[in-house]
Computed example of a mutant assay.
Amino acid sequence: MNDMLHLVEPVIPALRRYARALVRNRATADDLVQDCLERAVRHWHARREGDPRPWLFTILHNLAVNQFRRSARRGKHIAIDEANEDDFGQDAVQEQKLIYQDVLDKLARLPEDQRAVLLLVAVEDLSYADTARVLDIPIGTVMSRLSRAREKLQQEIEGTADGAPKNVVQLRSMK
C-alpha cells in the first residue's frame, strides 16, 4: 500500500489538470479524478510493472469518455427551478435529415474505389496505412483516391460537379 501511495500521489496534480481540460468544470473534474483513483486502488494488482502514470491517464480518459457518452444520451441537465419554456422545446430535424440524405446521395455517386477510401478514412477513422491494408492497395493510392473523392464530393455539394455552377443560367450571346 505504501509503494502505491508513493507512486500515485505525485501524479494526482497532473490527473486533475488533464481532467479539468477534458470536462472544463472543476467539481466534475475532481469527481473524475476520485473515480480514477478509486478504480486504480481497486485494480492495482492488475497493472503492469513500471511507471503507473500512463495507466492512470488511461483510466481517467476512459472514465471521461464514458461520462461524455452518458451525458450525450441523457441530454443536458437543467434544474427545474432554473428552466424556462425554451429549454423544453426542440428544433425541427427535417432539414438536417434532408441534408444528410443529400450527402448520402452525393456520396453514392462517387466511384466505388474512391467511396471505399473516403468511408474508411473519414467515417471509420482508419489510418492511411490501415486503409491500404484493408483494400490491399499502396498508401499512395489511398492518398490520391482520397484526394479525388474529397474534391469530387465537394464539387457535388457545391453543385459544380460538371464544371459550371448548377444555379447559374448560361446565356448565349446574340450578334
Results as ranks from 00 to 15, higher is better:
residue 73 R to N: 08
residue 73 R to F: 06
residue 74 R to K: 14
residue 74 R to D: 13
residue 75 G to R: 09
residue 75 G to N: 07
residue 75 G to Q: 08
residue 75 G to W: 07
residue 77 H to Y: 10
residue 77 H to L: 12
residue 77 H to V: 09
residue 78 I to Y: 08
residue 78 I to A: 02
residue 78 I to S: 01
residue 79 A to H: 12
residue 79 A to I: 03
residue 80 I to P: 00
residue 81 D to C: 03
residue 83 A to V: 01
residue 84 N to T: 15
residue 86 D to C: 11
residue 87 D to Q: 07
residue 87 D to N: 14
residue 87 D to M: 10
residue 88 F to I: 10
residue 88 F to D: 02
residue 90 Q to L: 14
residue 90 Q to P: 00
residue 90 Q to I: 12
residue 90 Q to K: 14
residue 91 D to T: 13
residue 92 A to Y: 02
residue 92 A to G: 09
residue 92 A to N: 15
residue 92 A to V: 06
residue 93 V to S: 14
residue 93 V to I: 12
residue 95 E to T: 11
residue 95 E to V: 07
residue 95 E to M: 06
residue 95 E to Q: 13
residue 96 Q to C: 03
residue 96 Q to T: 07
residue 97 K to H: 13
residue 100 Y to C: 05
residue 101 Q to F: 05
residue 101 Q to S: 12
residue 101 Q to R: 14
residue 102 D to R: 13
residue 103 V to C: 08
residue 103 V to L: 13
residue 105 D to M: 06
residue 105 D to N: 12
residue 105 D to E: 14
residue 107 L to Y: 02
residue 107 L to R: 04
residue 107 L to D: 06
residue 107 L to N: 04
residue 108 A to W: 04
residue 108 A to M: 06
residue 108 A to F: 04
residue 109 R to D: 15
residue 110 L to T: 07
residue 111 P to Q: 10
residue 112 E to T: 12
residue 114 Q to A: 09
residue 114 Q to S: 10
residue 115 R to N: 04
residue 116 A to G: 00
residue 116 A to S: 11
residue 116 A to R: 14
residue 116 A to C: 01
residue 116 A to D: 13
residue 117 V to E: 07
residue 117 V to C: 06
residue 117 V to M: 09
residue 119 L to C: 08
residue 119 L to V: 13
residue 120 L to V: 01
residue 121 V to P: 00
residue 122 A to E: 14
residue 123 V to S: 10
residue 124 E to L: 11
residue 124 E to F: 09
residue 125 D to T: 09
residue 126 L to M: 14
residue 126 L to C: 11
residue 126 L to D: 06
residue 127 S to L: 02
residue 128 Y to V: 15
residue 129 A to K: 13
residue 130 D to K: 03
residue 131 T to F: 05
residue 131 T to P: 01
residue 132 A to R: 03
residue 132 A to V: 05
residue 133 R to N: 12
residue 133 R to P: 00
residue 134 V to H: 08
residue 134 V to P: 00
residue 135 L to M: 08
residue 136 D to E: 12
residue 137 I to M: 07
residue 137 I to P: 01
residue 137 I to Q: 02
residue 137 I to E: 03
residue 138 P to K: 08
residue 138 P to I: 00
residue 139 I to Q: 12
residue 139 I to V: 15
residue 140 G to I: 02
residue 141 T to L: 06
residue 141 T to Q: 11
residue 142 V to W: 02
residue 142 V to G: 02
residue 142 V to Q: 01
residue 145 R to S: 04
residue 145 R to Y: 11
residue 145 R to W: 08
residue 147 S to T: 11
residue 148 R to K: 14
residue 148 R to Y: 12
residue 148 R to S: 12
residue 148 R to C: 09
residue 149 A to Y: 05
residue 149 A to V: 07
residue 150 R to W: 00
residue 150 R to S: 13
residue 151 E to W: 04
residue 152 K to D: 14
residue 152 K to G: 03
residue 153 L to W: 05
residue 153 L to F: 09
residue 153 L to C: 08
residue 153 L to K: 07
residue 154 Q to Y: 08
residue 154 Q to V: 09
residue 155 Q to C: 10
residue 157 I to F: 12
residue 157 I to C: 12
residue 158 E to S: 09
residue 158 E to P: 00
residue 159 G to Y: 05
residue 159 G to A: 10
residue 159 G to N: 10
residue 159 G to W: 03
residue 160 T to Q: 13
residue 162 D to A: 11
residue 162 D to L: 11
residue 162 D to I: 04
residue 164 A to K: 09
